[in-house]
Design a protein around this nucleic acid. Structure first.
Lengths: 163, 163
DNA sequence: AACCGAAACGAATAATTTTGCACATACATT
DNA sequence: AATGTATGTGCAAAATTATTCGTTTCGGTT
């Protein structure tokens, strides 16, 4: 089982990509990703991250990360504290298509992350563009997906869900 | 007892002004305002208005009306409603190159269209970024151009010129 | 290493929310 | 008026979520 920080990160990513209707369902998804916890823990996790269940247009419910959710920086930082701040707060998910990496962040965090990537002056990345919650990073053509993920691990916590 | 429309209105205002932690609590507030309904009805009301319970900073919960939620739409529209407004106004053209869809809109409409695409949480699209009159949307690698166009037809009026 | 306090967790339970069903009401059609 | 359809509601069961309590784990300290 993973530690709490990894789990919270994984939850963010899963909630963002999937339409999860209950904590039980989330527990199963987590299990598939090698994280075995009970519903009770998820209730606490979701509460701590202010993730909430809302009605969907098709009559059901799903968990979402509310837009304006300014979580305090202290939230995810229980343990070690050595990397860039994105490790703790902003990052949600990363996906790669062709030579473009698409990084999802919490609302408002994309610009800062893009800035950090730019400032690394790495030749793996040709350039970035950031919206409010998305960063596009254009990779050099000969960089493989795996290499790209390895590279971005310098900025964001990449886990099994992405590999 | 008031009719449903009045009640929904009252719920909106109560939820806005108070920190309501449960449906039972809301039921009591409503009663004080001359509206006597059961908790079951409130569950349905809140669902219909997409009002949701979120964690508060002080360890409890409260109901809120999420930010981006344009509930008037679903609430008051009795008749059939056409799709998103882009169908009528903003859209100009769409072109696809590799895994990127480039959508041109009239000036100012790109952000809204990108937002709608994002909010669909479709896994066909990894992410979008919008300028004033252009949306870039990165597609998953295995999505063909045809599939992509079919997908975007949900948001914009795609005609023979594009197929 | 042994100890202490805090944080994390699961099992069980409590609390809350959601929903199936039955019934009532309103409104349109025959 | 009788019928049909759609909407609204309460009741009670079912489903889901939150919390209590006891135990374990993790860091830091002696």
């Amino acid at each position: 089982m993973k530690n709490k920080k990894e789990r919270l990160q994984l939850i963010l990513s899963l909630v963002n990509k999937n339409s999860i209707g209950s904590q039980h369902e989330l527990a199963q998804l987590l299990k598939e990703n090698g994280c075995d916890v009970t519903q009770a823990t998820l209730s606490r996790d979701l509460k701590s991250m202010k993730i909430t269940k809302v009605a969907t247009n098709d009559g059901g419910y799903m968990y979402i990360i509310p837009d304006n959710n300014r979580l305090q920086d202290s939230m995810l930082m229980s343990g070690r504290q050595s990397m860039t701040a994105h490790q703790q707060v902003g990052f949600i998910s990363i996906n790669i298509s062709g030579n473009i990496a698409v990084i999802k962040t919490r609302n408002g965090y994309a610009a800062g992350l893009a800035y950090d990537i730019d400032m690394s002056h790495s030749n793996e990345v040709l350039g970035t563009i950031a919206g409010a919650d998305t960063v596009f990073a254009i990779m050099r053509e000969d960089i493989s997906h795996d290499e790209a993920l390895k590279f971005f691990a310098r900025f964001i916590p990449i886990d099994d869900a992405h590999l």
